[in-house]
Computed example of a mutant assay.
Amino acid sequence: MPGPAAATAAARGEIVAFPTDTVYGLGTSASSREGVERLYRMKGRGPDKPLPLLVASTAEARRWVDWPPQAEALAGRFWPGALTLVLKATPQGRGLACCRGETLAVRVPAHPVALALLEACDFPWAQTSANESGQPPLADGAAVAARFGEALAVVLDCGPASGKESTVVDATVSPVRVLREGAVPAGDVLARPRRVLFVCTGNTCRSVMAEALFNGLAAQVGLEASARSAGIAADPAFPVPAAVRGALAAEGVPAPEHVPQPVSRELMDWADRVLVMERRHQDALLARFPESAAKVALLAGPEGVADPIGQSEAVYAACCRRIKSELGPILGRTLEEKDHASHP
């Protein structure tokens, strides 16, 4: 694991060479204008080209970039890992020295040394691959040290890197666009889920509406996809409220004959995507099924979908509409195009 020298050097705006799960990187504090300019000069990169941002966690990423549902879904599947997301910068993000416009490219690396380094700092890192612009990445720490020499404050040499750069995705739009294919195949990024499990607390309201809406909308556009639902604390004795049936009927979707069921290993294994309504549901699933972490994500971003249980029919109807609005990015462009055609 890296010692304090690397973090201290980066905080001063000096350049550190370190391994990632893709290629060796050159990095410094993204808050240091002097450090970022030094990085541009070493790289031979035009100042109009923004530098990617490395952070230690999804929670930290949300501080610097806006976080739409498609970002939550991709981060849940591929982070930590070799996927870089281009997202709209928050006001705080636009204040970083590496920001050159309205967007930032951000990633959580999977390499233990890189993660430990990021976690040891109270700032994000501006980073670029360890090579001159237009040249292939250097293979290991020794090659990086030989090429850049005294311009580097610290070199963390952990042997050869994989040599394949991250895949870059424009997640400001939905469906997302692959800008550069790298270590993560474009097909994996763009693949639509075929089996979706929706999870809420009691499996009587939100997840039931999500299941019915998803299955109904998928059938309308001819997608071979299906959904099921379950609850973290489901009790089969509790019936589905009449307000759920009414909210679904208002959207033209019949309510299923449904008995609440708890989340099980069988359901988790069946699903290729698990979408939850609140952060606490995600936490509960990850505690019980840590091996399924890559497929669990929030349906509606960090704010979640509030529970309408025990409230008015209008609240149920609003909840149903909110869930429906979040299904577009999941079902993909086919659904969007059908909606546009039916509402000229």
Results as ranks from 00 to 15, higher is better:
residue 5 A to V: 04
residue 6 A to D: 00
residue 7 A to D: 00
residue 10 A to K: 05
residue 21 D to L: 07
residue 24 Y to F: 12
residue 25 G to E: 03
residue 35 G to I: 04
residue 41 R to C: 02
residue 44 G to Y: 14
residue 45 R to I: 10
residue 57 S to P: 02
residue 60 E to D: 13
residue 62 R to N: 01
residue 64 W to F: 15
residue 65 V to P: 01
residue 67 W to I: 01
residue 71 A to H: 02
residue 75 A to S: 14
residue 83 L to V: 12
residue 85 L to D: 01
residue 86 V to K: 00
residue 86 V to M: 00
residue 94 R to W: 07
residue 94 R to H: 04
residue 94 R to K: 15
residue 96 L to K: 07
residue 97 A to N: 06
residue 99 C to R: 02
residue 102 E to L: 05
residue 102 E to W: 05
residue 103 T to H: 00
residue 104 L to C: 04
residue 114 A to I: 03
residue 134 G to I: 10
residue 137 P to N: 07
residue 139 A to K: 15
residue 141 G to W: 04
residue 141 G to L: 04
residue 143 A to C: 09
residue 144 V to N: 04
residue 150 E to C: 00
residue 150 E to F: 02
residue 152 L to G: 04
residue 153 A to W: 06
residue 154 V to P: 00
residue 154 V to N: 00
residue 154 V to W: 02
residue 157 D to L: 05
residue 163 G to L: 10
residue 165 E to V: 15
residue 165 E to Q: 15
residue 173 V to G: 07
residue 181 E to T: 06
residue 183 A to C: 10
residue 186 A to Y: 03
residue 187 G to A: 13
residue 187 G to Y: 07
residue 202 G to C: 10
residue 209 M to F: 13
residue 211 E to L: 12
residue 211 E to G: 01
residue 216 G to S: 13
residue 232 I to L: 15
residue 242 A to D: 14
residue 245 R to W: 07
residue 247 A to F: 12
residue 251 E to K: 12
residue 254 P to M: 03
residue 257 E to K: 13
residue 259 V to N: 06
residue 262 P to A: 15
residue 263 V to E: 02
residue 265 R to P: 05
residue 265 R to Q: 13
residue 280 R to P: 01
residue 281 H to V: 01
residue 282 Q to Y: 09
residue 287 A to S: 14
residue 290 P to V: 11
residue 291 E to A: 15
residue 292 S to R: 14
residue 294 A to N: 13
residue 295 K to I: 02
residue 297 A to P: 00
residue 301 G to K: 07
residue 302 P to A: 13
residue 302 P to F: 00
residue 307 D to H: 06
residue 319 C to Q: 06
residue 322 R to G: 11
residue 326 E to S: 12
residue 330 I to N: 03
residue 334 T to P: 02
residue 334 T to D: 13
residue 336 E to I: 14
residue 337 E to S: 07
